[in-house]
Design a protein around this nucleic acid. Structure first.
Lengths: 342, 342
DNA sequence: TGCAGCTTGAGGTACGCACCTCAAAAAACG
DNA sequence: CGTTTTTTGAGGTGCGTACCTCAAGCTGCA
């Protein structure tokens, strides 16, 4: 009835508690035959280690690290905040999360910081661009036995243990469907704006967006991506310029930050409310824009889920435990004013 | 550096370990002055009880119960499945979840089952209609010190400790916005179909739907709700009849089950793909319908989150611990083909 | 046969906490 | 003041596991 304990295993296998312990914890000095006897007893009784008690005894604490690029984007601020909360929430589970911000453009600084992590680190969650330097840093981390998961933006499969985030291409496709349908069958062109097309995410989003627009909404033409490089003034300039050349713009797909600048620019041009606007990532700005009607929809991922999922996966990795893939699957969320959480 | 333990509290407060224990566990025989001395020490050191160790010592196990109406709807099957998985996932945290199915129409049977629960039950999650019998049963449960949370469909505030589910009215509003925008500014009428308008959820959804349709899409008229009572044949009959009388139907809002029957009916009438269809609850049927293009969007809540949230909240109630409201807030999810999880 | 080396058992300590008992100290009371 | 009552301390045991030591048993090999 009650859960079997190590003592039950010992009795069932006809060995001593010490031997069971040696087997369960991969300690040497046990004959292969005895090992399998114990393992059979474990299987027979359906024993599962009581992690709470084990961690208590082990005096183990998980030293997790999350590394994010620096920068004052609201998205990163939200992510950091979510990680921080997940970290303090998990404190009772003996996990301590340290958040590391590295200079956004300086992957060498990131690599150095990762190399400086103590061997006692039990896991690293990383949001970083996909460069050779980063790849090497990850490989070296993993060689040291430290699991690494990619956050938000995926890294090459072989270099990380897990990816936590949404499929950017599917997110782009989702944005396209909403854009197409919200435009209601009319013809015209669509403006796509990104911070930079050097980031993998932006490229994937754009790719997904184009796929669907081409296939399902042939009446709408997506113009070449405008890059803002994170500067509001640049956004204003390129949008103004683009709208001058293409007066038939029916919608704007804003793939990165800049919603306030965009709203201001459209207001100045007297175009507020005249086109469908779809953005990414729910932040205070986009939330406000949804409420005020400046944006029609936002495609996002839940930062809280992402952060908690990251910690869970890292813990599971550290414990060599299984991961519930379904639970860790992040959804591509569609947010409009009506389903905005209060 | 490390977390303070009860011993640290004892030293800090200048009392013995036994006294700290008495205070922490609300045991009698401690002077008010001493109690506050201990509490101050707790606050000063930022002590938080190690729940894992506490439960280990207490030999505590949580006996949770989830009661759902009987019936073969996919939604209920998914919910039960999700609860079952959440339960086995939480088994390592010493919670055992028993799932109780009661005859859908028989609230007396439900009341009897609830009354028969042992006093050792640590919490009940309940999906039930809002009737006096249910209300009394809940009141009596809570009088016995057993926390009760409402699942999916809320119960009157005073009778339950918590509600886990989405705001049905907001869900209806969300459906309306999608319906209106997907119809693309055209005029006509909208069919609304429910299993029964006796369920609180359906009424709320309809209310939210109407609010938005009236205010934002005056060109679209929502016809009176058709009730199917869960029978495919009824659905077919009422839909066929309704479409005969109203040839200008532009969209269908299916608030409950019946997607297969609806698809078949429309196919027979040669209307497949001719109108916007919006449904509720992601199930194998609606998922299939999204993939095949028979439905345009589904408004849903994540069963996995719901189930896990229910267990978390029940546990927190049992432990008299705080609840992270933000984490337990279920989202109204919008699902279209493009953001359907694989 | 004897000895080294491997394997196993027995038992202890610790983790942080709950819960129990008994005696001693302190406070309240008449 | 003595007596009763309340409050407190000291200490123990156990939860399920990890990890350590030491001695005893077993194995194979020269």
């Amino acid at each position: 009835m009650t859960r079997p304990t190590v003592n039950d295993i010992a009795r069932e296998a006809g060995v001593s508690l010490a031997t069971v312990d040696r087997v369960l914890n991969d300690r040497p000095g046990v004959r292969a035959k005895t090992v399998s006897a114990v393992q059979e007893a474990v299987a027979r009784l359906g024993y599962v280690r009581d992690m709470a008690a084990a961690n208590l005894a082990r005096q183990r604490s998980y030293q997790m690290v999350a590394a994010l690029p620096d920068g004052d984007s609201q998205f990163l601020a939200e992510l950091e905040q979510a990680l921080r909360e997940a970290g303090s929430g998990a404190a009772q589970a003996r996990v301590a999360l340290q958040i590391l911000r590295y200079p956004a453009e300086d992957v060498h600084a990131l690599a150095a910081a990762l190399a400086a992590l103590p061997d006692t680190t039990s896991g690293v969650a990383l949001m970083a661009p996909e460069t050779p330097v980063v790849r090497d840093a990850l490989r070296s981390l993993r060689a040291r036995g430290i699991p690494v998961i990619a956050l938000v933006s995926d890294l090459p499969n072989t270099e990380r243990d897990h990816f936590i985030g949404i499929d950017s291409r599917a997110a782009g496709r989702t944005a396209a469907v909403l854009m197409g349908r919200f435009c209601g069958g009319s013809t015209g062109s669509i403006l796509a704006i990104a911070q930079s097309m050097h980031l993998r995410d932006a490229v994937d989003r754009r790719r997904g967006f184009d796929e669907v627009m081409l296939a399902e909404f042939p009446g709408l033409t997506v113009l070449p991506t405008l890059e803002t490089h994170g500067a509001d003034s640049t956004l204003r300039a390129v949008v103004t310029e683009a709208l001058r050349h293409a007066p038939d713009v029916r919608g704007i797909y804003l793939m990165g930050a800049g919603h306030r600048a965009l709203a201001a620019t459209l207001a100045d041009l007297g175009l507020t409310g005249r086109m469908v606007i779809i953005g990414h990532e729910l932040t205070p700005h986009t939330r406000q824009a949804l409420l005020s009607g400046h944006i029609d929809a936002v495609i996002t991922q839940n930062m809280g889920h992402l952060a908690r999922s990251a910690l869970r996966v890292l813990r599971a990795r550290a414990d060599h435990a299984a991961i519930d893939a379904a639970q860790e699957q992040l959804r591509i969320e569609i947010v409009i004013r009506e389903n905005l959480a209060p």
